[in-house]
Design a binder for these strands. Structure first.
Length: 403
RNA sequence: GGGUCGGUGGCAGAGUGGUCAAUUGCAUCAGACUGUAAAUCUGACGCCGCAAGGCUUCGGGGGUUCGACUCCCUCCCGGCCCA
């Protein structure tokens, strides 16, 4: 495999969305310029079913390295997921094998939107179950003997829980070691991960040195908030997911509050930095942020789903929300004449329960062809055939009345 | 092992015999407004029921009582202190 040393691509890798590179950007730059073929990976624990646009940052970075000819590994932490990277304030529940399989089922496909698992330099898809599940107690003891409790307790969230007298289970302390061991097992030259992974990745840096006498570089990615203002997380499911439809992605992106626009551009799109500066200036001069948010949303969708899908998603958004119209594509559903609207809503998941459906009607959130339903006992009629049932702002179904 | 405090709705966290389907905050949902699924404001927020009302909830099980989230017993789980 020929190694490419395109400085522009290398700088993109070293700068865009990067919080820090350990031990230094300069050192890794040298490595990339050396012509040596490097092995780099990022791991993702299947603690939830969807990869999101936050992960896309790392995956995109992997994509650059793939193009440069390096050996790239997309690692699924199917074994580490059992423990779960410890959380701020609670012990995670241990996931079962079935949960894990279910969660990771669509991942390769999701990631394939950004990197190539085929071609002449395919990204390798690995699972850490391959080596972690085979460790003996002896191996584990050896691993544990490499670090001190004090070192592990440096991790701020461990400290916090200790100080708050919140439970901290013994196995949670092993997480950084497990993650670090991945790097040892794969003998990698670099690990990429979110800034929240800094501790774990640096811990692994020490282990690589110890076990292999090898320097593992670490790149940490800046963290992007979810539209609700909290860090995007697989577990919470609050992110813009790679598996979302273009329309949903666009809508979710639009629900970012205005102050996230600039970081959204930087971290979730490939709009050049100079252009982002200009947007910043324009907004300071009082330009309507919505214009730029729409551009941001478009760019996010375009990067993952392509230009055509992004344009269609934007059009759909404007039609449905700006003009309060009906989208072009509406899923149809078969309904029975004389069935109550309430029951119909529940049966297709437009309401969680009868009570919920009634609430939505009472609050004026349900309409058929623009006509508000006000009566909670209302029924489906033959005349409704072909009409559009709307619940809330963004749930539409075309009615197909049977008989 | 001993002592002590605690386990409440998606989460956080009130409630200490009836007025508790359970204060409040976050999240969620609906509406208004708008420049957006932003912000802000209003309302809803266990389930069944058109309603009256009913049913099932406050770690598990049992008990006391007309009546328990609240009292007692027991079991499980956790924090802290002592050993």
């Amino acid at each position: 495999m020929k190694i490419i040393t395109d400085e522009k691509m290398i700088d993109e890798f070293l700068e865009r969305g990067v919080e820090e590179i350990y031990p230094s950007k300069l050192a890794f730059r040298k490595k990339l310029m050396s012509g040596e073929r490097l092995r780099i990976y990022q791991g993702f624990d299947p603690t939830g079913p969807y990869l999101h646009v936050g992960h896309a940052m790392g995956i995109r970075a992997l994509g650059i390295l793939q193009k440069l000819g390096h050996e790239v590994i997309f690692l699924v932490g199917d074994y580490t997921a059992k423990v779960g990277d410890p959380d701020k304030d609670t012990t995670r529940k241990m996931l079962t094998d079935e949960d894990i399989e279910k969660n990771m089922a669509g991942w390769k496909e999701q990631a394939a939107q950004l990197v190539d698992f085929g071609g002449d330099n395919p990204v390798r898809f690995e699972r850490n179950n391959k080596w972690l599940s085979k460790m003996t107690l002896g191996d584990i003891l050896k691993l544990m003997s490499k670090v001190t409790i004090q070192q592990i307790l440096q991790r701020d969230l461990f400290k916090k829980r200790l100080e708050a007298d919140d439970p901290l289970k013994f196995h949670e302390l092993l997480y950084p070691l497990m993650q670090g061991y991945d790097g040892v097992a794969m003998e990698v030259d670099m690990e990429i991960g979110g800034a929240d992974q800094t501790f774990n990745m640096l811990c692994g840096r020490d282990l690589s040195k110890n076990y292999l006498g090898k320097e593992k570089f670490v790149r940490t990615n800046k963290m992007m908030d979810a539209p609700d203002g909290v860090t995007m997380s697989k577990t919470k499911g609050n992110g813009i997911n790679l598996a979302d439809s273009p329309e949903d992605m666009f809508g979710k992106a639009m629900s970012y509050s205005d102050k996230h626009i600039l970081s959204g551009f930087e971290l979730l799109t490939d709009v050049p930095v100079e252009e982002i500066r200009e947007i910043e200036k324009a907004m300071e001069q009082g330009e309507n942020p919505m214009i730029f948010k729409k551009k941001m949303a478009y760019e996010i969708v375009r990067m993952i789903k392509g230009a055509e899908a992004a344009a269609a998603a934007q059009e759909n958004f404007e039609k449905v929300f700006s003009k309060k119209g009906t989208p072009d594509k509406v899923t149809s559903m078969e309904v029975t004449a004389e069935a109550s609207i309430v029951a119909t809503m529940v049966s297709v998941g437009m309401a969680e329960s009868n009570a919920d459906a009634k609430r939505k009607i009472e609050q004026g959130g349900v309409s058929v062809d623009g006509e508000k339903i006000t009566d909670i006992t209302a029924k489906i009629t033959k005349e409704m055939d072909g009409q559009i049932l709307k619940v809330g702002k963004r749930e539409f179904r075309k009615l197909k009345v049977k008989k």
